[in-house]
Every structure is written in structure tokens, then in C-alpha cells.
């Protein structure tokens, strides 16, 4: 019982981190990035290749985070260019189609070039005891890192001028322009930041379970579900929904099996949307 709860929180925190990135880009720029999971996987592969080239794990992880940020920048400078010329629904739709195409290409390339590679990071030492439950050390470390990053993120958005400026674009883009904020620059910044977050998700996840080259779509779909439940554009919502769905998913997996747990997740998402169309902490349209 408590073991499931704690495992659920470990998973849920990663859900939250994953969805946080997706929801920020959507809220800020009306861009739905369906290649988000692939960004995480590409970053993971950067870590794997760096380690194979002889780098120690920590510098290799740094390379992975850098790769994630660069992928975000690349997205902004290349395939999102035509998206930026559109507004409203057309913008969401084109971003969705282009990034989905990108995702297929990345998946195709990775399974062709590196069919069997996976990122697995191990942390030495035995299990850690929490509330009388023995937890895998990797999971605990992953959660601590995730909690630190999420808290840092929330502080950044609440306390710093730049963080407030980014939120103001989500709140009212025209209002932001009127006080001298360039929404396009904020979006580029957030694409780089969420690229780093995607890489971080891959790294922390690999402390618990291997991140294979084929993991991209599963990550994107999880992020989408969590984003929708949490409310588009709300990082707090993403964290809350992530933890809730993580717990639900873990309980479902242990009681009725892994395959059905994804269905349970989708049902939970559908029910949330029926009751609160804007998500747990989303803005009402």
C-alpha cells in the first residue's frame, strides 16, 4: 500500500516534470510539441554515446542536458518558423503536424541506427528505507532531483523578473508586449528550457528504468495526458496532475497489470475533462 503510494509519487514527479515542459510551450506560444518525448530520447542517446566515448557519467549527463537545450533551440530556429506566422487553431494544428512528423523521423532514424541502445544510469548503494518501505536508491535520487528542479522552476516563475515576464506572456500576450516584453524571445527561451527539462526527465527516469530509443511516443503521450488533466499552461497543475496520475497508474499496474494501467490513465483523463474541461488548475476559457 505505502510502497505503491511512494512508487506512484516517484513516477508522478517525473510525469509532472515531463508535462511541465509541454504545458509551458503550449501556454506561451500556442505550440503543441509532439516531438517532446523524442527530444528526451535524443538527449538520452547523447548521454549514452558520450559515455561510450569514454566520458564519466556526470559530464555525460551534462552533455545530455546541453543536447536537450540545443534541440529546443533548433526546433525554434527551423521547423517552428512557419508555425509562428499563424495564429490560433491553425497555429496549434500546424505545430502538432510538423512536430509529429519530426517525431516519426527521429524514431525512424534512432531505430535504424541504434536499435538496441538504451540509457541506464545506476547509483551505487543499497535500498533506502522511507516510512518503513525499502525504496530503490535510484528512484529516491531521481525524485529528489525532480523535486529540486520543480521547486526551482516554481521559484523562478514566481520570484524573478524573467520568470514573471514569461508568465505574463501566458496571461496576456498583448499586455506583455505593451510593457516591452518580446513574446517571441520568451518562447525561444522556454523552448530551450523545456529541452533541458526533457533531457532531465530522460536522465532521472534512467535511474529507475532503462530509457530505450523507442520510448519517445510513450513519453509524449504521458506528458499530453498529464498536461490535459493539469490544465494547459499551468506548471502547478502539471505537477499536481502528474503526482495524482502517477499514483493511480502505479496502483492500477500492481492490481490489474501494466497494459490496463494506461487505459485507466486515459479514463482518469477523460473523467477530468468531463468534469473540469479546463483541467485541474487551468484557466477557464
Amino acid at each position: 500500500m505505502i510502497a505503491n503510494l511512494l512508487d506512484g509519487i516517484v513516477l508522478g514527479l517525473q510525469f509532472g516534470l515531463l508535462a511541465g515542459g509541454l504545458t509551458l510551450v503550449y501556454g506561451l506560444g500556442g505550440v503543441l510539441n509532439l516531438a517532446y518525448g523524442q527530444m528526451a530520447v535524443l538527449s538520452a542517446m547523447a548521454v549514452v554515446l558520450s559515455m561510450e566515448a569514454g566520458l564519466a557519467p556526470i559530464p555525460a549527463v551534462a552533455v545530455g542536458l546541453l543536447a536537450g537545450g540545443l534541440l529546443g533551440l533548433l526546433l525554434d530556429l527551423t521547423i517552428l518558423r512557419p508555425v509562428y506566422r499563424l495564429q490560433g487553431e491553425a497555429r496549434v494544428l500546424l505545430s502538432l503536424l510538423l512536430t509529429l512528423g519530426m517525431a516519426f523521423m527521429v524514431d525512424g532514424f534512432l531505430t535504424w541506427r541504434y536499435p538496441t541502445k538504451a540509457l541506464t544510469l545506476r547509483i551505487g548503494g543499497g535500498p533506502v528505507e522511507i516510512l518503513g518501505v525499502r525504496m530503490v536508491r535510484g528512484g529516491v535520487v531521481a525524485s529528489v532531483i525532480t523535486i529540486l528542479v520543480l521547486s526551482g522552476l516554481l521559484l523562478f516563475f514566481r520570484k524573478t523578473t524573467l520568470g514573471r515576464a514569461i508568465r505574463s506572456v501566458i496571461e496576456d500576450e498583448q499586455g506583455a508586449r505593451l510593457v516591452g516584453i518580446d513574446p517571441q524571445r520568451m518562447l525561444r527561451l522556454i523552448l530551450v528550457l523545456t529541452g533541458v527539462l526533457a533531457a532531465l526527465v530522460a536522465v532521472t527516469r534512467s535511474l529507475v528504468t532503462p530509457v530505450a530509443v523507442t520510448a519517445g511516443f510513450e513519453l509524449t503521450v504521458s506528458a499530453l495526458i498529464v498536461t490535459v488533466v493539469g490544465g494547459l499552461g499551468s506548471v502547478g497543475g502539471a505537477i499536481l496532475a502528474g503526482i495524482l496520475l502517477g499514483i493511480i497508474s502505479t496502483f492500477a499496474a500492481s492490481s490489474i497489470g501494466t497494459v490496463l494501467s494506461l487505459i485507466i490513465l486515459l479514463v482518469a483523463a477523460a473523467v477530468t475533462i468531463l468534469i473540469r474541461p479546463s483541467g485541474l488548475l487551468g484557466v477557464k476559457e
Binding site: 514573471r164 508568465r167 505574463s168 496571461e171 496576456d172 498583448q174 499586455g175 506583455a176 505593451l178 484557466v283
Partner: peptide, 11 residues
Amino acid sequence: VPAERHLFPRM
């Protein structure tokens, strides 16, 4: 200051 104000409502 536009007529619609364009404030940041949840701030």
C-alpha cells in the same frame, strides 16, 4: 493603456 486593459489576470 488599451481600452481592454490587457492586465495579467492571475498575477
